[in-house]
């Protein structure tokens, strides 16, 4: 092979693992791999969206009635928070590419703060459901006469399954971004001078945002 890779020790910018020939091949592989993973995430949430679509199509009038139980203002607040966190994550990637460490750290911190804010708002919403006995199960309680209680429970089953799974992704995102921020702050060899970790985690975080972009109108803003 004519192309002989220049070996740079790991931890330096442009370091290459031994299975790769050069930094471009390595970076490309990571980005493509992340996208392939996100395809699986799309299918993962896709199945839930499909279930939602089928039941919504079946029970549109009932779902419309039940969705008033959700507060669209809290939903809109959470959308704004998540969009802002996505924006600051995109900025973090930008600064990582320009190797501006302090700014990158500030952006990562903002993202984590926004993510916590999102969870707090989510917690407020969920505790309200708890108080009104809207958690599916034996204690589910429904008084509205216009909607059969079982369909209301189905709506809340979908709501908790989808927002719950999304919430799990948010928690994972918080952990991953915090670890990244710590590593960047400590100039760890795994991330020093390398924007790829930030970029990959950024892709994940934007995906979490994407899911919420669809969840928000589907649950909080059901049109009649």
């Amino acid at each position: 092979m004519a192309h002989v890779a220049k070996k740079i020790p790991l931890g330096e910018p442009g370091a290459v693992f031994e299975q790769y020939e050069d930094i471009h091949q390595q970076n490309d592989s990571y980005v493509v791999g992340m996208w392939a993973f996100l395809v699986t995430e799309v299918m993962f949430f896709g199945a839930l969206f499909l279930m939602y679509s089928i039941y919504r199509w079946k029970y549109q009038p009932y779902f419309w009635e039940v969705h008033h139980e959700l507060d669209w203002r809290l939903g809109a607040l959470n959308t704004t928070i998540l969009l802002a966190s996505s924006f600051s994550m995109a900025l973090a990637v930008h600064f990582a590419q320009r190797t501006q460490k302090t700014k990158q750290l500030m952006c990562l911190g903002t993202t984590v703060l926004c993510a916590f804010g999102f969870l707090v708002v989510k917690g407020i919403e969920w505790s309200a459901k708890w108080e009104h006995h809207h958690i599916p199960g034996p204690n589910f309680h429904w008084t509205e006469a216009t909607v059969p209680p079982n369909v209301a429970q189905l709506f809340f089953s979908l709501y908790f399954a989808m927002t719950g799974l999304h919430g799990v992704h948010v928690v994972v995102g918080i952990i991953v971004i915090s670890v990244l921020a710590i590593l960047v702050a400590k100039d760890n060899v795994m991330v020093k001078g390398d924007y790829i970790p930030t970029e990959l985690i950024g892709l994940y975080w934007h995906f979490v945002d994407l899911v919420w972009i669809f969840l928000f109108p589907l649950f909080y803003l059901i049109p009649r």
């Binding site: 279930m51 039941y55 599916p136 199960g137 079982n150 429970q153 189905l154 089953s157 399954a161």
Partner: peptide, 10 residues
Amino acid sequence: HLGVFSPELG
């Protein structure tokens, strides 16, 4: 009890 496939809940 998240009954997405449950016929009891429709």
